[in-house]
Each structure stands twice: as structure tokens, then as C-alpha cells.
Design a protein around this nucleic acid. Structure first.
Lengths: 203, 203
DNA sequence: TAACTTACCTACCAAGTGGTAAGTTGTCAA
DNA sequence: TTGACAACTTACCACTTGGTAGGTAAGTTA
């Protein structure tokens, strides 16, 4: 299969998996969207599970690539992390496919893992954790606390990203635009507030 | 149908919907878990959609009740919000069903809403937003910014809650225990840091 | 030219889906 | 004793699911 054909198939599959989840999309629906039969898709990827795996594999690689980019452009780990989170927040404001996909993977993984048994997100999460543990003043922080911190920051960004379609439905697009505009500024407040000083009481 | 029978049916349905999502559970599976046939369930609730609606309705009411409790126990809005988030974080450490259910609702809602057309979470979210907008020093903050703030805090709690099963799979239960123990302390750092001072640059 | 590969197709299958129709059983009030 | 009602049951339906089997047409290579 040609590389760009493959990319195209993965693009469509990724969008649909993000929108409806693994169990919510049929291979026939993905194939339909691409203008082929589901058997053509099965021919290329072997099974639905493998197609989904290929989608997640690509996402995981892209995420790691982005992390690498900021860590090459910046030497200060604090600035690295801040730059990464800012970039993530901006991406996420306009493009919610991947946070949605990841969210669904986090939710369904336990169930799927019994059959699939692969942790596509592991390398990405470990890279991020390492990054936090390099923060100045955090070297005394326990591993668990560092991980908790990064997860809270990731959550602050991702939860909103994932909620956008529903929030638009609830509050209407006018008010939603206002919220979306206010989001990055509020987020930088939060990031700066929490990254500014090392842990004081807890840990 | 007796009230406690109904509660029991909803309990089981809620747990399964949270674990697998609306499209991931069949009414037959829920009925199986309860030891009855799917037709018995359909008899009580009419349709799968209505059963799901009843589950969400109850969650929404419980959430509002919890909000009412903290706002009756405390008069200072800052303390109210802090108390609520702390309680939420503690709940969520041990019991992930509801955050998971809500997360799935946020993800699937747009699709389901075309058929269902009800926003079960709206009252809860509006209560929370009002609470934030009563914060001292936040009265000059725009509505959008206030909402963004509360969503970031909610996200910090919920994202982790939802991730726990998957994270346990990835990192093993020993390391996961360490993370879970560190989480509340880190979260209180974050809450205090971000609620301490009103918005300075953004907005 | 012959052998092989890639990219698709139609036809089919067993299993499972939500939902309807029409009973059956047990309880309890008149 | 009768009748009403709730709480089920079995039987069934049309439809969708992931996946297999087997084929065709168009390259590509020896």
C-alpha cells in the first residue's frame, strides 16, 4: 500500500474513531466515508482492532515528535513544559480530534486491552513525566507527585477540548466563542501559578 | 416499580454505561448482570435511551444536591468552591464511575443529542459557573473567563479520575498507588494557586 | 509469456442489536 | 371468587456487526 494512501485511510479512521469511539464506528462506516467497501479496508489492515492500533500508533509517534521538537528548541525544562502546554492548548482550541481520541482510548483501553494488550500511549506519557521530573525545585518531589501534577495540567487542557461540542450544544455558539477566547489566557494563569513555585505543603 | 428496585436497576445500568459507554453496552448485558431478561428491563424503562436518560437524570440531581450541601454549609463562595473541589477529588480517588459516565456523556452527547435532545448536565454546570462568578475579585472577570477557569479545575480532577484504570494497566498497581496518594496534595496546591489571586494579565 | 502481487469486489455467515407482541404468573383489593 | 394490575416470560422480527471465502482485474517482475 502506498504511504500516502495509508495516511489517507488513517486520517478518516482517526476522525471517525475520535467522534464515535471504537465500538461506535463500524469498519463499513469508515469504508463508506472513504468510498470503498469494508472488505477493502480489512484487506489493508487485517482487522478492525489492527486498524485502530495503526491509528493510535501514528498519534503516539506524532505526540512524541512534538515533545522532541520543544525539547530541542529549549534547554530550560520549565520553558520546555510551558511551551509544550501552551502549544497543546492552542492546537486543542481548534482541533479536537486527537484529545477526543485519546480520551476515548483512556476510557475504553481497559476493556480493549484484554484483547489488544498494547499500551500505545505509554511512551508519550513517560516522556512527559520525565520532563516534569526535570523541573528545577522538583527533583525532591516524589515521582508520584510529579506525575499527579502533569496529569492535572493535561486534564485542564484536555477536558475542555473534549467538552467543546457538548458545551456548544448547551450554551450556544455565541457564548461558546466567548469561552473559547478566554480559555488560553486562563490556562496560562493556571500553568504559571502552579509551575511557579515547587511543592510546599504536600509530598 | 418499587423505588429501591428502581435504584438497584439504575445502579447496575450506571456502572455498565460508565464502563463501556452507551453504544458499548446492550440492554441484554445490563439485564444479565441484574439476573433478568432484557425484556424485563424494557418493560420498566421503555427503551434503552430512556434507561440511559434516567441514569443521567439521577446523577445530575445528586450533583446538584452536593453543590447545595456545600453552599448551605459555607457562606464564603471561595470556601464553598474549594470545599466542593476537595470533596470531588476525594470521591473521585476511590469511585470513578460517575466521572467516567460524565466523560462519556460529554463525548457522545453531540451524537446522541440528535435523537435524545436533552441536556441532563446543564443545571449542574450552570450551578458551578454561578458559584465561580461569585468569587471575590472575580466579579470583574468576564463570564467566559470564569467558565474557562472552572472547566480547567474540573478537568484537572476528572481527567485523572477517568484515566485510573488505564494508568494502572500501564504503570502497574504499585506505582499507581503512589500516584493516587500524591494526587490530593498536588491538587490542593493547584486549587490554592489558581484561586488565590484574581486574574492579572488575561481578560 | 508466465508467475505473482496488490487492490479491490460480491456473496455470505453466525452472532448480536433494539424493539414488538402476546402470553404467564403472582399479589392484592372489591 | 373475581378482576385488575404489575412483573415478568418466550417467541419473534428486521437489521447491523466483524469477519471469511473466493473471485476479478490490473500491474510488476522473472
Amino acid at each position: 500500500m502506498a504511504a500516502d494512501t495509508r495516511e489517507q485511510l488513517l486520517d478518516t479512521a482517526e476522525a471517525l474513531f475520535a467522534e464515535r469511539g471504537f465500538y461506535g464506528v463500524s469498519i463499513a462506516a469508515i469504508a463508506d466515508e472513504l468510498g470503498l467497501t469494508k472488505q477493502a479496508l480489512l484487506h489493508h489492515f487485517g482487522s478492525k482492532e489492527k486498524l485502530y492500533g495503526a491509528v493510535l500508533q501514528r498519534v503516539s509517534e506524532d505526540f512524541e515528535r512534538k515533545l522532541s521538537m520543544v525539547s530541542e528548541a529549549e534547554s530550560d525544562p520549565l520553558k520546555q513544559l510551558r511551551a509544550y502546554l501552551y502549544a497543546l492548548a492552542t492546537d486543542v482550541r481548534d482541533e479536537q480530534i486527537r484529545p477526543q481520541l485519546l480520551m476515548r482510548e483512556l476510557l475504553d483501553n481497559k476493556r480493549r486491552a484484554e484483547e489488544a494488550g498494547t499500551w500505545y500511549l505509554k511512551p508519550y506519557l513517560e516522556r512527559l513525566t520525565d520532563m516534569v521530573r526535570c523541573l528545577p525545585g522538583r527533583d525532591t518531589t516524589s515521582e508520584g507527585a510529579a506525575f499527579a501534577l502533569v496529569y492535572q495540567l493535561l486534564g485542564a487542557v484536555t477536558y475542555f477540548a473534549v467538552s467543546q461540542p457538548t458545551l456548544t450544544g448547551i450554551f450556544g455558539s455565541a457564548r461558546m466563542t466567548e469561552i473559547r477566547d478566554a480559555f488560553p489566557g486562563q490556562l496560562s494563569n493556571l500553568i504559571d501559578a502552579v509551575l511557579a513555585e515547587p511543592t510546599h505543603s504536600a509530598d
